[in-house]
Amino acid sequence: MNRIVVLVILIAIFPGSAVFGQKASADSAFREQAVNYAHARYVRSTADQARLYNGAEYVGHLPSIKGYPYVDSLWRVGTVTYDGVTYENIRLLYDLVDDVVVVPHIDSVYRMQLQSIKISRFSIPNHTFVRIVRDTAHNVGLRTGFYDQLYDGRSTVLARRIKTIKTELVQNAVKEEYLSDNFYYIEKNGLFYSVKSKRSVLNLFADQKKALRKYLRENRIKFRQNREQAIVKLAQQYDEATRSL
Rank of each mutant, 00 (worst) to 15 (best):
I11N: 14
W75H: 04
L150H: 06
G16Y: 01
M112T: 07
E176T: 12
L93T: 08
L204Q: 00
A12E: 09
Y82A: 10
V140G: 07
V85K: 15
F20H: 14
S244E: 09
Y70Q: 04
R160F: 13
Q171S: 14
E57L: 13
A235I: 00
T86S: 04
R220F: 12
F30C: 10
V201Y: 00
E88L: 10
N2C: 03
S155M: 03
Y82P: 13
V102D: 02
S28E: 06
L245F: 14
N219R: 05
A12D: 06
D135W: 01
L96F: 03
A18Q: 02
Y94A: 11
N36L: 07
S155Y: 00
H138F: 08
E88K: 15
E176M: 13
I106C: 05
D152S: 13
H127L: 05
N2A: 04
V71G: 07
K222S: 03
V71E: 09
R41A: 15
L10G: 04
N2S: 11
T128L: 09
L52Q: 08
D98F: 05
V35N: 08
G84S: 05
R91H: 12
N182M: 02
T164V: 11
S64A: 15
L92Y: 08
R160M: 04
R41V: 11
P69H: 08
I9C: 06
Y185D: 06
R131V: 13
S120Q: 11
L212A: 01
V97P: 14
I13F: 01
I90P: 04
Q208A: 14
L169P: 04
V59S: 04
R31G: 07
T156I: 15
L93Y: 11
T81A: 14
G145Y: 04
E228W: 00
A26R: 05
Q33K: 15
R41Q: 14
S28T: 12
F122E: 01
G55R: 01
